[in-house]
Amino acid sequence: MKILVCISKTPDTTSKIAFKENNTKFDEASVQWIINPYDEWYSLVRAIELKEKDASITITLVHVGGADSDPIIRKALALGGDEAVRINAQSDDTYFVAAQIAEVAKQGNYDLIFTGKETIDYNASAIGGMVAELLDLPYISLATKFELNSTTAVVTREIEGGEEVDEVALPAVVSCQKGVAEQRIPNMRGIMAARTKPLKVVEPTPIEALTKIVSYELPPAKAGVKMVPATDMAELVRLLHEEARVI
């Protein structure tokens, strides 16, 4: 069995978000880069757990990005990926990224493709669905549990106002979120092994981006918090009703 895990690079949650060049570019200075938490904690760790039960499983990581992404790819290898493919391109268009991943996926004949539920920078939640469509595969989004049978997977996923347990024939694409696995930290042996694991760099397929970020904006600064005395909840209710108009 072959599993392809999509890995994205995102700014750490605690990074300061700022823009430059007249608010047209994200300011990467002083940003700490991490593996997108949904990719790392849930989809990658679940793939590793499956491999621990069945040693014949191989885990390939795929990432679209420049050479500056290699440290986070090595970290994913240290956690337990077997090999990685980096598509040497940079884009914030979801179709471009998904189409690149789909090209790699086509060549590898994977039984299972994992993505995280969304990235914490662009929050689109779209790569898995697009990859599935481009490969004509079933897609189970927002998984909270994932088990393998021999030729099918049993997946619990979030639906509006509840959850559903689905059975799907493989190959399939699954997006993972909390519940699928628990976060892990790479150990020394993993870090050493990662240094020699294959990281293949391939050039992108010519694909046209369909969207372009024109500008960024920071939300208007909050007017500042208005404090209400603990003894005057009537005043708080009045403010929420008359001033904020939310109740």
């Binding site: 998904a98 779209a126 697009m130």
Partner: peptide
């Protein structure tokens, strides 16, 4: 809608139509 169903289906429609997607 960017709800559970929209997040599962809109990207597929976008890929099928080669249509640019803005999610959210």
């Amino acid at each position: 809608s960017h709800n559970q169903t929209g997040r599962a289906v809109a990207p597929r429609i976008a890929a099928k139509l080669k249509a640019g997607l803005v999610a959210g």
